[in-house]
Simulated scan of single mutants.
Amino acid sequence: MNDQQLLRYGRHILLPEIGIEGQQKLLDAKVLIIGLGGLGSPAALYLAASGVGKLTLCDHDTVDFSNLQRQIIHRTSTVGEPKVASAQAVLRDINPEVECVALQLRADEEQLNELAAQADIVLDCSDNFATRYAVNRACLAQRKPLVSGAAIQFDGQVAVFDYRNAEAPCYNCLFPEDSQATELRCATTGVFAPLVGIVGSMQAAEALKLLAGIERGLSGRLLTINALDMNIMRSALSKDPACRACEG
Rank of each mutant, 00 (worst) to 15 (best):
I225N: 00
A236D: 12
A159K: 05
C58I: 10
A204G: 11
P96Q: 15
G35I: 06
P241L: 15
V191H: 12
A181L: 14
H60C: 05
V199E: 00
I73F: 06
L222H: 08
Q153F: 03
G200A: 12
D240C: 03
L15T: 12
Q157R: 04
L39G: 02
R132G: 07
C58D: 11
M233K: 11
G22R: 03
C243G: 10
C186E: 11
A116V: 02
I152L: 13
E99G: 02
N2G: 15
L7Y: 10
K209Y: 08
V160Y: 02
I225P: 00
F175Y: 15
C173S: 09
S50A: 14
Y133S: 02
K25V: 05
D108C: 03
L36W: 10
D155V: 09
I121M: 05
D61T: 05
M233L: 09
Y171P: 05
G51E: 12
Q4N: 09
Q111G: 06
E21C: 01
I121A: 07
N95C: 04
S126F: 03
G197C: 09
T224G: 12
L26D: 02
G35A: 06
N231I: 08
K30V: 04
D59M: 03
S238A: 13
R75L: 13
K144W: 06
A150E: 01
L55A: 05
L45T: 09
V84N: 08
R164M: 01
P145C: 01
R221C: 02
S41I: 08
L36F: 12
A107L: 10
L208R: 13
S126E: 13
N113W: 07
P82W: 02
L112V: 03
Q157P: 13
K54Y: 01
L140K: 00
L91N: 02
L26V: 01
R234S: 10
N2Y: 03
D162N: 14
E81N: 07
C139E: 07
D3L: 03
R106S: 06
R216P: 00
L123Y: 09
Q142N: 12
A29T: 03
L174P: 14
A116C: 05
G156A: 13
S201D: 05
A150Y: 00
F154T: 15
G197I: 04
A102K: 01
N136R: 02
V199L: 09
R216C: 04
V52G: 01
A87H: 04
A107Y: 07
P176S: 04
L91Y: 00
M233N: 13
T78C: 14
N136C: 09
I198L: 12
D229G: 05
S77H: 03
Q71D: 06
